[in-house]
Design a protein around this nucleic acid. Structure first.
Length: 572
DNA sequence: GCCGTTTTCGGCCCGACTGTTTTCAGTCG
Protein backbone atom coordinates (compact mmCIF):
# COMPACT_ATOMS: atom_id res chain seq x y z
CA UNK A 1 0.00 0.00 0.00
CA UNK A 2 1.71 3.21 -1.16
CA UNK A 3 1.41 6.79 0.10
CA UNK A 4 -1.01 7.83 -2.64
CA UNK A 5 -3.38 4.96 -1.88
CA UNK A 6 -3.47 5.66 1.85
CA UNK A 7 -3.92 9.40 1.25
CA UNK A 8 -6.79 8.72 -1.16
CA UNK A 9 -8.53 6.49 1.39
CA UNK A 10 -8.27 9.10 4.17
CA UNK A 11 -9.41 11.80 1.79
CA UNK A 12 -12.44 9.71 0.74
CA UNK A 13 -13.21 9.03 4.40
CA UNK A 14 -13.17 12.77 5.08
CA UNK A 15 -15.68 13.31 2.26
CA UNK A 16 -17.95 10.59 3.60
CA UNK A 17 -17.72 11.84 7.18
CA UNK A 18 -18.55 15.30 5.86
CA UNK A 19 -21.73 13.99 4.21
CA UNK A 20 -22.60 12.25 7.46
CA UNK A 21 -22.30 15.57 9.26
CA UNK A 22 -19.46 14.45 11.51
CA UNK A 23 -17.51 16.83 13.72
CA UNK A 24 -15.79 19.40 11.51
CA UNK A 25 -12.42 19.06 13.21
CA UNK A 26 -12.50 15.31 12.93
CA UNK A 27 -13.09 15.67 9.19
CA UNK A 28 -10.23 18.15 8.97
CA UNK A 29 -7.97 15.70 10.79
CA UNK A 30 -8.55 13.14 8.02
CA UNK A 31 -7.97 15.73 5.31
CA UNK A 32 -4.76 16.98 6.93
CA UNK A 33 -3.49 13.45 7.36
CA UNK A 34 -4.20 12.72 3.68
CA UNK A 35 -2.30 15.84 2.59
CA UNK A 36 0.64 15.15 4.85
CA UNK A 37 0.94 11.56 3.66
CA UNK A 38 0.73 12.61 0.01
CA UNK A 39 3.52 15.14 0.62
CA UNK A 40 5.73 12.80 2.61
CA UNK A 41 8.48 12.15 0.03
CA UNK A 42 9.40 8.79 1.51
CA UNK A 43 7.39 5.59 1.75
CA UNK A 44 4.82 5.57 4.53
CA UNK A 45 5.35 1.83 4.72
CA UNK A 46 8.93 2.44 5.83
CA UNK A 47 7.83 4.80 8.60
CA UNK A 48 5.28 2.18 9.62
CA UNK A 49 7.96 -0.54 9.82
CA UNK A 50 10.08 1.71 12.00
CA UNK A 51 7.08 2.21 14.28
CA UNK A 52 7.36 6.00 13.85
CA UNK A 53 3.89 6.78 12.43
CA UNK A 54 2.85 9.08 15.26
CA UNK A 55 5.97 11.19 14.69
CA UNK A 56 4.38 12.32 11.40
CA UNK A 57 2.41 15.58 11.54
CA UNK A 58 -1.33 15.05 11.88
CA UNK A 59 -1.01 11.36 12.71
CA UNK A 60 -2.06 10.42 16.23
CA UNK A 61 -2.70 7.04 17.77
CA UNK A 62 -6.07 6.51 16.04
CA UNK A 63 -4.91 7.23 12.51
CA UNK A 64 -1.67 5.35 13.16
CA UNK A 65 -3.64 2.22 13.99
CA UNK A 66 -5.72 2.70 10.83
CA UNK A 67 -2.52 2.94 8.76
CA UNK A 68 -1.27 -0.16 10.55
CA UNK A 69 -4.44 -2.03 9.59
CA UNK A 70 -4.04 -0.92 5.95
CA UNK A 71 -0.38 -1.96 5.82
CA UNK A 72 -1.02 -5.35 7.41
CA UNK A 73 -4.27 -6.35 5.67
CA UNK A 74 -4.59 -4.00 2.70
CA UNK A 75 -8.03 -3.11 3.99
CA UNK A 76 -9.65 -0.81 6.51
CA UNK A 77 -12.83 -1.74 8.32
CA UNK A 78 -13.85 1.84 9.12
CA UNK A 79 -13.47 2.72 5.43
CA UNK A 80 -15.56 -0.27 4.32
CA UNK A 81 -18.26 0.65 6.81
CA UNK A 82 -18.48 4.21 5.50
CA UNK A 83 -18.64 2.93 1.93
CA UNK A 84 -21.52 0.63 2.81
CA UNK A 85 -23.41 3.48 4.47
CA UNK A 86 -23.04 6.13 1.78
CA UNK A 87 -23.69 5.61 -1.95
CA UNK A 88 -20.55 6.49 -3.93
CA UNK A 89 -22.63 8.61 -6.32
CA UNK A 90 -23.45 10.90 -3.40
CA UNK A 91 -19.74 11.30 -2.67
CA UNK A 92 -19.16 12.11 -6.35
CA UNK A 93 -21.62 15.02 -6.02
CA UNK A 94 -19.01 16.86 -3.94
CA UNK A 95 -17.02 17.39 -7.15
CA UNK A 96 -19.88 19.46 -8.57
CA UNK A 97 -19.11 23.15 -8.10
CA UNK A 98 -21.66 24.66 -5.73
CA UNK A 99 -22.69 21.33 -4.23
CA UNK A 100 -21.22 20.61 -0.82
CA UNK A 101 -21.75 17.92 1.79
CA UNK A 102 -24.97 19.41 3.18
CA UNK A 103 -26.67 19.63 -0.20
CA UNK A 104 -25.46 16.20 -1.32
CA UNK A 105 -26.80 14.65 1.89
CA UNK A 106 -30.20 16.30 1.37
CA UNK A 107 -30.49 15.22 -2.27
CA UNK A 108 -29.88 11.69 -1.07
CA UNK A 109 -31.95 11.61 2.12
CA UNK A 110 -34.86 13.81 1.10
CA UNK A 111 -35.12 13.00 -2.60
CA UNK A 112 -33.53 9.55 -2.78
CA UNK A 113 -30.96 10.69 -5.38
CA UNK A 114 -27.80 8.57 -5.33
CA UNK A 115 -25.99 9.39 -8.60
CA UNK A 116 -24.87 12.51 -10.45
CA UNK A 117 -26.96 11.44 -13.47
CA UNK A 118 -30.11 11.12 -11.31
CA UNK A 119 -29.35 14.53 -9.82
CA UNK A 120 -29.19 16.00 -13.30
CA UNK A 121 -32.55 14.47 -14.23
CA UNK A 122 -34.15 15.73 -11.03
CA UNK A 123 -32.86 19.25 -11.66
CA UNK A 124 -34.10 19.17 -15.25
CA UNK A 125 -37.51 17.97 -14.03
CA UNK A 126 -37.66 20.85 -11.51
CA UNK A 127 -37.73 18.56 -8.51
CA UNK A 128 -34.88 20.19 -6.56
CA UNK A 129 -36.90 23.35 -5.90
CA UNK A 130 -39.23 21.28 -3.70
CA UNK A 131 -36.48 21.27 -1.08
CA UNK A 132 -36.74 24.00 1.53
CA UNK A 133 -34.18 26.68 0.78
CA UNK A 134 -33.79 25.70 -2.88
CA UNK A 135 -35.23 27.70 -5.76
CA UNK A 136 -35.09 27.76 -9.54
CA UNK A 137 -31.74 29.54 -9.40
CA UNK A 138 -30.13 26.89 -7.21
CA UNK A 139 -31.48 24.26 -9.54
CA UNK A 140 -29.86 25.93 -12.55
CA UNK A 141 -26.60 26.24 -10.60
CA UNK A 142 -26.60 22.49 -10.04
CA UNK A 143 -27.11 21.90 -13.78
CA UNK A 144 -24.31 24.34 -14.64
CA UNK A 145 -22.09 22.67 -12.08
CA UNK A 146 -22.72 19.24 -13.57
CA UNK A 147 -21.99 20.54 -17.08
CA UNK A 148 -18.70 21.99 -15.84
CA UNK A 149 -17.91 18.78 -13.96
CA UNK A 150 -18.31 16.87 -17.26
CA UNK A 151 -16.01 19.06 -19.37
CA UNK A 152 -13.55 19.87 -16.61
CA UNK A 153 -10.08 18.77 -17.68
CA UNK A 154 -8.46 18.91 -14.28
CA UNK A 155 -5.65 21.11 -13.11
CA UNK A 156 -3.63 23.38 -15.37
CA UNK A 157 0.15 23.15 -15.66
CA UNK A 158 2.27 25.85 -14.09
CA UNK A 159 3.88 26.48 -17.47
CA UNK A 160 0.46 27.38 -18.93
CA UNK A 161 -0.92 29.34 -15.98
CA UNK A 162 2.20 31.42 -15.37
CA UNK A 163 2.30 33.29 -18.71
CA UNK A 164 -1.49 33.72 -18.67
CA UNK A 165 -1.26 35.36 -15.24
CA UNK A 166 1.58 37.64 -16.34
CA UNK A 167 -0.41 38.72 -19.39
CA UNK A 168 -3.56 39.60 -17.42
CA UNK A 169 -1.58 41.36 -14.69
CA UNK A 170 0.12 43.51 -17.33
CA UNK A 171 -3.32 44.60 -18.56
CA UNK A 172 -4.55 45.36 -15.03
CA UNK A 173 -1.42 47.38 -14.17
CA UNK A 174 -2.47 49.81 -16.93
CA UNK A 175 -5.75 50.65 -15.15
CA UNK A 176 -5.52 54.09 -13.48
CA UNK A 177 -5.18 53.90 -9.71
CA UNK A 178 -3.56 50.45 -9.61
CA UNK A 179 -0.62 50.46 -7.21
CA UNK A 180 0.30 46.77 -7.11
CA UNK A 181 -0.67 43.64 -9.05
CA UNK A 182 0.57 40.13 -8.36
CA UNK A 183 -0.36 36.48 -8.64
CA UNK A 184 -1.34 34.72 -5.42
CA UNK A 185 -2.55 31.20 -4.67
CA UNK A 186 -0.84 28.03 -5.81
CA UNK A 187 0.64 29.89 -8.78
CA UNK A 188 2.68 32.11 -6.47
CA UNK A 189 3.69 29.04 -4.48
CA UNK A 190 4.75 27.61 -7.86
CA UNK A 191 2.90 24.34 -7.48
CA UNK A 192 3.35 22.08 -10.51
CA UNK A 193 -0.32 22.52 -11.40
CA UNK A 194 -2.91 25.09 -10.40
CA UNK A 195 -6.65 24.52 -9.98
CA UNK A 196 -7.56 28.13 -10.62
CA UNK A 197 -5.77 31.43 -10.93
CA UNK A 198 -5.75 33.93 -8.04
CA UNK A 199 -4.82 37.49 -8.93
CA UNK A 200 -4.44 40.37 -6.50
CA UNK A 201 -4.54 44.11 -7.18
CA UNK A 202 -4.05 47.04 -4.80
CA UNK A 203 -6.07 50.12 -5.70
CA UNK A 204 -8.23 52.67 -3.90
CA UNK A 205 -10.67 52.55 -6.79
CA UNK A 206 -11.76 48.91 -7.39
CA UNK A 207 -14.58 49.35 -9.90
CA UNK A 208 -12.49 50.26 -12.98
CA UNK A 209 -10.24 47.27 -12.23
CA UNK A 210 -13.20 44.89 -12.07
CA UNK A 211 -14.64 46.40 -15.24
CA UNK A 212 -11.38 45.96 -17.11
CA UNK A 213 -10.98 42.41 -15.83
CA UNK A 214 -14.40 41.25 -17.04
CA UNK A 215 -13.57 42.59 -20.52
CA UNK A 216 -10.34 40.67 -21.15
CA UNK A 217 -10.68 38.44 -24.23
CA UNK A 218 -10.26 35.22 -22.22
CA UNK A 219 -13.62 35.69 -20.44
CA UNK A 220 -16.31 33.17 -21.31
CA UNK A 221 -18.51 33.80 -18.28
CA UNK A 222 -18.53 36.09 -15.25
CA UNK A 223 -19.26 33.74 -12.36
CA UNK A 224 -19.65 36.35 -9.65
CA UNK A 225 -18.73 39.95 -9.09
CA UNK A 226 -18.70 42.00 -5.91
CA UNK A 227 -16.83 45.09 -4.72
CA UNK A 228 -13.76 43.13 -3.64
CA UNK A 229 -13.95 39.94 -5.66
CA UNK A 230 -14.71 38.96 -9.23
CA UNK A 231 -14.49 35.45 -10.69
CA UNK A 232 -14.54 34.62 -14.37
CA UNK A 233 -14.29 31.42 -16.36
CA UNK A 234 -12.27 31.12 -19.56
CA UNK A 235 -13.29 29.25 -22.69
CA UNK A 236 -11.22 26.30 -21.44
CA UNK A 237 -13.23 26.13 -18.22
CA UNK A 238 -10.36 27.65 -16.22
CA UNK A 239 -11.46 29.89 -13.33
CA UNK A 240 -9.67 33.17 -12.58
CA UNK A 241 -10.37 35.05 -9.35
CA UNK A 242 -9.45 38.69 -8.93
CA UNK A 243 -9.40 40.51 -5.58
CA UNK A 244 -8.96 44.25 -5.26
CA UNK A 245 -7.99 45.83 -1.95
CA UNK A 246 -6.54 48.93 -0.32
CA UNK A 247 -2.77 49.35 -0.73
CA UNK A 248 -2.36 49.69 3.04
CA UNK A 249 -3.65 46.11 3.43
CA UNK A 250 -1.51 44.58 0.68
CA UNK A 251 0.66 42.53 3.05
CA UNK A 252 -2.13 40.71 4.87
CA UNK A 253 -4.04 40.20 1.62
CA UNK A 254 -1.09 38.84 -0.35
CA UNK A 255 -0.16 36.58 2.55
CA UNK A 256 -3.71 35.32 2.93
CA UNK A 257 -4.45 34.69 -0.75
CA UNK A 258 -1.10 33.04 -1.35
CA UNK A 259 -2.00 30.27 1.11
CA UNK A 260 -1.76 27.42 1.33
CA UNK A 261 -4.88 27.08 3.39
CA UNK A 262 -3.11 24.72 5.75
CA UNK A 263 -0.22 27.17 6.17
CA UNK A 264 -2.66 30.02 6.87
CA UNK A 265 -4.58 28.04 9.48
CA UNK A 266 -1.33 27.38 11.29
CA UNK A 267 -0.22 31.00 11.00
CA UNK A 268 -3.53 32.25 12.35
CA UNK A 269 -3.25 29.85 15.23
CA UNK A 270 0.18 31.29 15.98
CA UNK A 271 -1.31 34.81 15.79
CA UNK A 272 -3.96 33.86 18.35
CA UNK A 273 -1.13 32.78 20.66
CA UNK A 274 0.07 36.38 20.39
CA UNK A 275 -3.44 37.67 21.19
CA UNK A 276 -4.00 38.65 17.58
CA UNK A 277 -6.73 37.65 15.16
CA UNK A 278 -5.46 37.60 11.56
CA UNK A 279 -7.63 38.05 8.49
CA UNK A 280 -6.89 39.12 4.93
CA UNK A 281 -7.58 42.70 6.00
CA UNK A 282 -5.57 43.16 9.17
CA UNK A 283 -4.52 41.89 12.55
CA UNK A 284 -6.99 42.67 15.32
CA UNK A 285 -5.96 42.83 18.94
CA UNK A 286 -8.86 41.63 21.07
CA UNK A 287 -8.75 43.50 24.38
CA UNK A 288 -11.54 43.01 26.86
CA UNK A 289 -14.37 45.51 26.51
CA UNK A 290 -12.71 47.77 23.96
CA UNK A 291 -13.16 48.09 20.23
CA UNK A 292 -10.60 45.82 18.55
CA UNK A 293 -7.53 47.70 17.42
CA UNK A 294 -6.60 47.09 13.77
CA UNK A 295 -2.98 46.62 12.77
CA UNK A 296 -2.45 47.06 9.02
CA UNK A 297 0.42 45.47 7.11
CA UNK A 298 1.45 46.87 3.74
CA UNK A 299 4.02 44.11 3.23
CA UNK A 300 4.24 40.40 3.94
CA UNK A 301 7.41 40.94 5.99
CA UNK A 302 5.30 42.92 8.47
CA UNK A 303 2.72 40.13 8.67
CA UNK A 304 5.28 37.49 9.57
CA UNK A 305 7.19 39.88 11.84
CA UNK A 306 4.01 40.53 13.84
CA UNK A 307 4.01 36.89 14.95
CA UNK A 308 7.76 36.79 15.46
CA UNK A 309 8.75 35.12 12.20
CA UNK A 310 11.04 35.97 9.30
CA UNK A 311 9.37 36.10 5.89
CA UNK A 312 8.63 32.55 4.75
CA UNK A 313 9.13 32.16 0.98
CA UNK A 314 5.85 31.34 -0.82
CA UNK A 315 7.22 28.05 -2.17
CA UNK A 316 7.54 26.72 1.39
CA UNK A 317 4.02 27.62 2.54
CA UNK A 318 2.53 24.14 2.45
CA UNK A 319 2.43 23.37 6.18
CA UNK A 320 5.33 20.97 5.76
CA UNK A 321 7.21 22.17 8.82
CA UNK A 322 8.10 25.65 7.55
CA UNK A 323 6.53 27.54 10.46
CA UNK A 324 8.34 25.43 13.02
CA UNK A 325 11.60 25.88 11.08
CA UNK A 326 11.02 29.64 10.96
CA UNK A 327 10.38 29.75 14.72
CA UNK A 328 13.65 27.92 15.31
CA UNK A 329 15.59 30.05 12.82
CA UNK A 330 16.18 27.00 10.62
CA UNK A 331 14.57 28.18 7.38
CA UNK A 332 16.77 27.16 4.44
CA UNK A 333 18.40 29.91 2.42
CA UNK A 334 16.66 28.86 -0.80
CA UNK A 335 18.38 28.75 -4.15
CA UNK A 336 17.38 31.58 -6.51
CA UNK A 337 17.32 31.83 -10.30
CA UNK A 338 20.27 34.25 -10.16
CA UNK A 339 22.39 31.59 -8.47
CA UNK A 340 22.45 29.45 -11.62
CA UNK A 341 25.68 29.68 -13.58
CA UNK A 342 24.94 26.90 -16.05
CA UNK A 343 22.50 24.40 -17.52
CA UNK A 344 22.87 20.63 -17.85
CA UNK A 345 20.60 19.60 -20.69
CA UNK A 346 19.74 21.11 -24.06
CA UNK A 347 19.19 19.78 -27.57
CA UNK A 348 20.02 20.99 -31.07
CA UNK A 349 19.05 20.14 -34.63
CA UNK A 350 21.56 17.29 -34.36
CA UNK A 351 18.72 15.33 -32.71
CA UNK A 352 15.22 16.61 -31.92
CA UNK A 353 16.02 20.28 -31.16
CA UNK A 354 14.77 23.10 -33.35
CA UNK A 355 17.78 25.42 -33.25
CA UNK A 356 21.47 25.20 -34.07
CA UNK A 357 24.18 24.85 -31.46
CA UNK A 358 25.31 28.45 -31.94
CA UNK A 359 21.75 29.77 -31.60
CA UNK A 360 21.21 27.74 -28.44
CA UNK A 361 24.50 28.88 -26.92
CA UNK A 362 23.68 32.52 -27.63
CA UNK A 363 20.21 32.08 -26.14
CA UNK A 364 21.67 30.50 -22.99
CA UNK A 365 24.16 33.36 -22.71
CA UNK A 366 21.34 35.89 -23.11
CA UNK A 367 19.53 34.09 -20.26
CA UNK A 368 22.41 34.94 -17.95
CA UNK A 369 24.23 31.60 -18.04
CA UNK A 370 27.96 31.16 -18.57
CA UNK A 371 27.95 27.51 -19.62
CA UNK A 372 25.60 24.75 -20.78
CA UNK A 373 25.95 21.04 -21.40
CA UNK A 374 24.86 19.94 -24.86
CA UNK A 375 22.93 16.69 -24.62
CA UNK A 376 21.52 15.49 -27.91
CA UNK A 377 19.88 12.08 -27.91
CA UNK A 378 21.69 8.91 -28.94
CA UNK A 379 20.82 6.75 -31.90
CA UNK A 380 19.11 4.08 -29.83
CA UNK A 381 16.08 6.26 -29.13
CA UNK A 382 15.34 5.95 -32.85
CA UNK A 383 12.53 8.44 -33.21
CA UNK A 384 14.69 11.49 -32.71
CA UNK A 385 17.41 10.73 -35.25
CA UNK A 386 19.95 10.60 -32.47
CA UNK A 387 23.71 10.65 -32.60
CA UNK A 388 25.96 7.76 -33.51
CA UNK A 389 29.57 7.55 -32.35
CA UNK A 390 30.68 9.17 -35.61
CA UNK A 391 28.19 12.04 -35.53
CA UNK A 392 29.03 12.70 -31.88
CA UNK A 393 32.72 13.10 -32.88
CA UNK A 394 31.76 15.54 -35.63
CA UNK A 395 29.67 17.53 -33.15
CA UNK A 396 32.77 17.95 -31.01
CA UNK A 397 34.33 20.09 -33.75
CA UNK A 398 31.23 22.29 -33.86
CA UNK A 399 31.38 22.71 -30.07
CA UNK A 400 35.02 23.82 -30.28
CA UNK A 401 34.17 26.32 -33.01
CA UNK A 402 31.31 27.81 -30.99
CA UNK A 403 33.46 27.97 -27.87
CA UNK A 404 36.11 29.83 -29.83
CA UNK A 405 33.53 32.29 -31.10
CA UNK A 406 32.07 32.93 -27.61
CA UNK A 407 35.36 32.66 -25.74
CA UNK A 408 35.41 34.60 -22.48
CA UNK A 409 31.65 34.84 -22.16
CA UNK A 410 30.22 31.36 -22.65
CA UNK A 411 31.29 27.73 -22.78
CA UNK A 412 29.49 24.75 -24.27
CA UNK A 413 30.32 21.55 -22.42
CA UNK A 414 30.43 18.34 -24.43
CA UNK A 415 27.76 15.92 -23.30
CA UNK A 416 25.11 13.46 -24.38
CA UNK A 417 21.70 12.25 -23.26
CA UNK A 418 22.53 8.58 -23.56
CA UNK A 419 19.72 6.07 -23.70
CA UNK A 420 19.52 3.44 -20.96
CA UNK A 421 18.53 0.14 -22.60
CA UNK A 422 15.86 -2.03 -21.01
CA UNK A 423 18.61 -4.21 -19.47
CA UNK A 424 20.37 -1.21 -17.91
CA UNK A 425 23.22 -1.02 -20.43
CA UNK A 426 23.97 2.22 -22.25
CA UNK A 427 23.57 3.15 -25.89
CA UNK A 428 27.20 4.22 -26.43
CA UNK A 429 30.50 2.42 -25.75
CA UNK A 430 32.49 3.37 -22.65
CA UNK A 431 35.45 4.82 -24.56
CA UNK A 432 33.11 7.22 -26.36
CA UNK A 433 31.48 8.32 -23.11
CA UNK A 434 34.93 8.81 -21.57
CA UNK A 435 35.73 11.54 -24.11
CA UNK A 436 32.83 13.75 -22.95
CA UNK A 437 32.86 16.42 -20.27
CA UNK A 438 29.71 15.02 -18.63
CA UNK A 439 27.33 12.18 -19.40
CA UNK A 440 23.58 12.38 -18.85
CA UNK A 441 21.69 9.06 -18.91
CA UNK A 442 17.95 8.75 -19.44
CA UNK A 443 15.19 6.20 -19.69
CA UNK A 444 12.60 6.97 -22.37
CA UNK A 445 11.20 3.54 -23.20
CA UNK A 446 9.87 0.65 -21.17
CA UNK A 447 8.70 2.97 -18.39
CA UNK A 448 6.02 0.44 -17.51
CA UNK A 449 8.48 -2.24 -16.46
CA UNK A 450 7.71 -3.71 -13.06
CA UNK A 451 9.15 -2.06 -9.97
CA UNK A 452 12.06 -4.42 -9.49
CA UNK A 453 13.12 -4.31 -13.13
CA UNK A 454 12.88 -0.53 -13.65
CA UNK A 455 14.59 0.16 -10.34
CA UNK A 456 17.41 -2.24 -11.17
CA UNK A 457 17.82 -0.60 -14.55
CA UNK A 458 17.96 2.87 -13.02
CA UNK A 459 20.40 1.85 -10.29
CA UNK A 460 22.65 0.23 -12.92
CA UNK A 461 22.73 3.54 -14.81
CA UNK A 462 23.49 5.44 -11.59
CA UNK A 463 26.36 3.07 -10.80
CA UNK A 464 27.83 3.23 -14.31
CA UNK A 465 31.30 4.79 -13.91
CA UNK A 466 30.83 7.26 -16.78
CA UNK A 467 27.33 8.48 -15.89
CA UNK A 468 27.30 11.84 -14.08
CA UNK A 469 23.62 12.80 -14.19
CA UNK A 470 20.28 10.99 -14.47
CA UNK A 471 17.77 12.96 -16.53
CA UNK A 472 14.08 13.24 -15.53
CA UNK A 473 14.36 10.22 -13.21
CA UNK A 474 10.72 9.07 -13.09
CA UNK A 475 9.73 9.95 -16.66
CA UNK A 476 6.36 11.31 -15.64
CA UNK A 477 4.43 13.77 -17.82
CA UNK A 478 2.15 15.89 -15.67
CA UNK A 479 -1.50 15.21 -16.43
CA UNK A 480 -0.57 12.68 -19.13
CA UNK A 481 1.50 9.85 -17.81
CA UNK A 482 2.46 8.47 -14.41
CA UNK A 483 6.15 8.13 -13.69
CA UNK A 484 7.85 4.75 -13.62
CA UNK A 485 7.15 2.58 -10.57
CA UNK A 486 10.60 3.26 -9.12
CA UNK A 487 11.77 2.47 -5.60
CA UNK A 488 12.86 6.06 -5.03
CA UNK A 489 14.61 5.26 -1.75
CA UNK A 490 16.85 2.78 -3.59
CA UNK A 491 17.49 5.35 -6.33
CA UNK A 492 18.39 8.06 -3.81
CA UNK A 493 20.67 5.81 -1.80
CA UNK A 494 22.53 4.68 -4.94
CA UNK A 495 22.89 8.27 -6.14
CA UNK A 496 24.13 9.46 -2.76
CA UNK A 497 26.66 6.64 -2.62
CA UNK A 498 28.10 7.13 -6.13
CA UNK A 499 27.82 10.92 -6.27
CA UNK A 500 25.73 10.67 -9.46
CA UNK A 501 23.53 13.74 -9.67
CA UNK A 502 19.78 13.54 -10.22
CA UNK A 503 18.06 16.03 -12.45
CA UNK A 504 15.26 18.44 -11.71
CA UNK A 505 13.93 18.76 -15.24
CA UNK A 506 12.54 22.28 -15.59
CA UNK A 507 10.20 21.56 -18.49
CA UNK A 508 6.75 22.38 -17.04
CA UNK A 509 5.37 19.13 -18.43
CA UNK A 510 7.94 17.18 -16.40
CA UNK A 511 9.21 18.93 -13.24
CA UNK A 512 10.93 15.66 -12.49
CA UNK A 513 12.17 15.16 -9.76
CA UNK A 514 9.13 16.74 -8.12
CA UNK A 515 9.22 18.87 -4.98
CA UNK A 516 8.80 16.17 -2.32
CA UNK A 517 11.39 13.97 -4.05
CA UNK A 518 13.82 16.88 -4.12
CA UNK A 519 13.43 17.33 -0.40
CA UNK A 520 13.93 13.65 0.35
CA UNK A 521 16.94 13.42 -2.01
CA UNK A 522 18.61 16.34 -0.21
CA UNK A 523 17.95 14.72 3.17
CA UNK A 524 19.81 11.65 1.91
CA UNK A 525 22.76 13.70 0.59
CA UNK A 526 22.03 13.41 -3.15
CA UNK A 527 23.49 16.10 -5.43
CA UNK A 528 21.03 17.68 -7.86
CA UNK A 529 21.11 19.61 -11.11
CA UNK A 530 18.43 21.80 -12.66
CA UNK A 531 18.13 21.35 -16.43
CA UNK A 532 16.12 23.34 -18.94
CA UNK A 533 15.91 20.41 -21.41
CA UNK A 534 15.61 23.22 -23.96
CA UNK A 535 14.76 22.10 -27.49
CA UNK A 536 14.48 25.63 -28.86
CA UNK A 537 15.90 29.11 -28.23
CA UNK A 538 13.99 30.81 -25.45
CA UNK A 539 13.30 27.58 -23.56
CA UNK A 540 16.13 28.35 -21.14
CA UNK A 541 13.52 30.58 -19.48
CA UNK A 542 11.91 27.36 -18.23
CA UNK A 543 14.76 27.15 -15.71
CA UNK A 544 12.58 29.36 -13.49
CA UNK A 545 10.19 26.42 -13.05
CA UNK A 546 13.06 24.11 -12.18
CA UNK A 547 14.35 26.57 -9.60
CA UNK A 548 10.83 26.88 -8.20
CA UNK A 549 10.60 23.10 -7.85
CA UNK A 550 13.98 23.04 -6.11
CA UNK A 551 12.80 25.78 -3.75
CA UNK A 552 9.63 23.81 -3.00
CA UNK A 553 12.00 20.97 -2.08
CA UNK A 554 13.84 23.26 0.40
CA UNK A 555 17.01 23.31 -1.76
CA UNK A 556 19.83 25.73 -1.03
CA UNK A 557 22.47 26.84 -3.54
CA UNK A 558 24.83 24.25 -2.06
CA UNK A 559 22.51 21.40 -3.04
CA UNK A 560 22.43 22.34 -6.73
CA UNK A 561 25.45 21.85 -8.99
CA UNK A 562 24.38 24.62 -11.41
CA UNK A 563 25.64 27.13 -8.85
CA UNK A 564 29.21 25.99 -9.46
CA UNK A 565 31.43 27.18 -12.28
CA UNK A 566 32.22 25.08 -15.35
CA UNK A 567 35.90 25.00 -14.35
CA UNK A 568 34.98 23.74 -10.90
CA UNK A 569 32.86 20.96 -12.41
CA UNK A 570 34.95 19.73 -15.36
CA UNK A 571 38.23 21.64 -15.25
CA UNK A 572 39.57 24.22 -17.69
C1' DG B 1 -9.08 13.10 15.41
C1' DC B 2 -4.95 15.95 16.72
C1' DC B 3 -2.31 18.49 19.99
C1' DG B 4 0.26 21.14 24.13
C1' DT B 5 6.99 27.04 26.38
C1' DT B 6 -0.09 28.99 29.75
C1' DT B 7 -3.42 22.99 28.13
C1' DT B 8 -3.61 15.45 28.51
C1' DC B 9 -9.04 18.56 27.99
C1' DG B 10 -10.89 21.88 25.29
C1' DG B 11 -9.80 24.05 21.97
C1' DC B 12 -9.23 23.68 16.68
C1' DC B 13 -8.88 30.56 11.00
C1' DC B 14 -11.63 33.87 8.89
C1' DG B 15 -14.47 36.27 5.63
C1' DA B 16 -17.02 37.03 0.77
C1' DC B 17 -20.67 35.89 -1.99
C1' DT B 18 -25.09 33.66 -3.29
C1' DG B 19 -29.72 32.39 -2.87
C1' DT B 20 -33.01 31.98 -0.08
C1' DT B 21 -34.23 33.97 3.45
C1' DT B 22 -37.46 37.78 7.31
C1' DT B 23 -31.85 36.76 9.91
C1' DC B 24 -29.01 32.92 7.73
C1' DA B 25 -26.99 28.48 5.86
C1' DG B 26 -24.09 26.66 2.52
C1' DT B 27 -20.12 26.83 -0.25
C1' DC B 28 -15.67 28.28 -1.36
C1' DG B 29 -10.99 29.40 -0.71
Amino acid sequence: MNNRQVADIFSAMADMLDIQGANYHRIMAYRRAAENIAALGRPLEEVWREGQLTSLPGIGSTLASKIDELMRTGELEAYRDLQSEIPQGVVAMLHISGVGPKSAARFWKELGITTVAALEHAAQAGRLRNLHGFGAKSEQNVLDGIALFRRHTGRTRLGTAWPLAQKILAVLREVPGVVQAAPAGSLRRMRETVGDLDLLVASRDPQPVMNRFTRIPEVEEVILSGPTKTSIRTQEGFQIDLRVLEPARWGTALQYFTGSQAHNIRLRGLALDHGLSLSEYAFKREDAGTEPEEILCASEEEVYAAVGLPLIPPELREDRGEIKAALQGRLPNLIALDDLKGDFQFHTTASDGRSSLLEMAQSALASGLSYALITDHTHGLGVTGGLTVERLREQRKEIEAVNEQLAGSFRVLAGIEVEVHSDGSLDLPDDTLAELDLVVAAVHTGLRQDREQITGRMVAAIRHPHVDIIAHPTGRLIGEREGADLDMEAVFHAAAETGTALEINANPARLDLKDVHVRRAIELGVKLVISSDAHTVGAFADLRFGVATARRGWATAGDILNTRSAEDLVGP
